[in-house]
Simulated scan of single mutants.
Amino acid sequence: MSEVVLSCQGLVKRFGGIVATNDVSLELRRGARHALIGPNGAGKTTLINLLTGVLDATAGRIALEGQDITQLAPHQRVRRGMVRTFQINQLFATMTPLETLGLVVSQQRGLGTRWWRSLGSDRGVAERAQQLLEQFHLAEVANQQTEHLAYGKRRLLEIAIALACEPRVLLLDEPVAGVPAGEREELLQTVAALPAEVSVLLIEHDMDLVFSFADRMTVLVNGAVLTEGSPDEIAANPQVKAVYLGYENEAIHV
């Protein structure tokens, strides 16, 4: 069985009297395509915020590649190889995709704020930025300001930024949320083609994406793990159909 790269045990998050995450344990294995699903309010984004350090856990432990990271700040977790995307784009509106990726690649390579020079003088930065532009179908809009890009292109840029950070663990928080139907296929294909060596934890409501992408699934309900299994096991699970999908006697259509 493949190595566990990210895990949490007994993770709890309380907001006053509200228990948002209740004794959650989860393992993400190397190279996995693992989906985290559940109804609205199940605690999915809270769990991602705990894993990435945006929120402090009330109780429990988080480990990345065997090292306890429970007390580390978000930027320290990124440096150790765990990167996330967000439900809402967090991009520089007036920068172009080329400039944005040049900045991220330069910082990743220790060149700091010299990125504008690096694009012209550092062949490695320019080549990596161009590679990412092509991989994420952004080459034709490389010099357009981000605020003028179609929404699907902005989502692609956000994932490209995450991959530019050279993650070993990538957390995708609803990558197709808000993307119009006509722009979704390009994004779905790009997510499916992410590097095999990157272990991915995906939060998504789009069941077509979930079942085409995931090799393992965890179902959260009311802040707790309801069940975990392969896509086939989840699709056939009567608890999932009753509690998550709201009906008992029909199959999950994928």
Rank of each mutant, 00 (worst) to 15 (best):
M1N: 11
G10Y: 10
L11S: 13
R14F: 06
N22G: 09
R29K: 14
G31V: 10
H34M: 10
L36Y: 11
A42P: 01
G43S: 08
K44M: 04
L50G: 14
G53K: 01
V54L: 03
D56M: 05
R61M: 15
E65F: 02
I69E: 00
H75Y: 12
Q76S: 14
V78L: 00
R79W: 01
R80L: 10
F86T: 13
A93W: 11
A93P: 03
T94I: 00
T94W: 09
M95C: 11
T96F: 12
T100C: 01
T100G: 02
L103K: 14
V105E: 04
S106T: 04
Q108P: 04
R109G: 03
R117V: 08
V125S: 09
V125Y: 07
L138N: 08
E140K: 13
V141H: 04
Q144E: 10
G152W: 10
L157P: 05
E158V: 08
A164C: 10
C165Y: 03
C165P: 00
P167W: 02
V169Y: 09
L170K: 05
L171V: 11
L171H: 13
D173V: 05
P175F: 12
P175G: 06
P180K: 08
G182W: 08
R184M: 13
E185Q: 10
E186W: 07
L188M: 06
T190C: 11
P195Y: 08
A196L: 12
S199V: 09
L202T: 05
E204C: 01
L209N: 08
L209E: 01
D215P: 02
T218L: 05
V219P: 02
V221W: 01
N222Y: 13
A224K: 08
L226S: 07
S230E: 08
P231T: 09
V243M: 13
Y244L: 14
E248A: 15
E248P: 00
I252L: 12
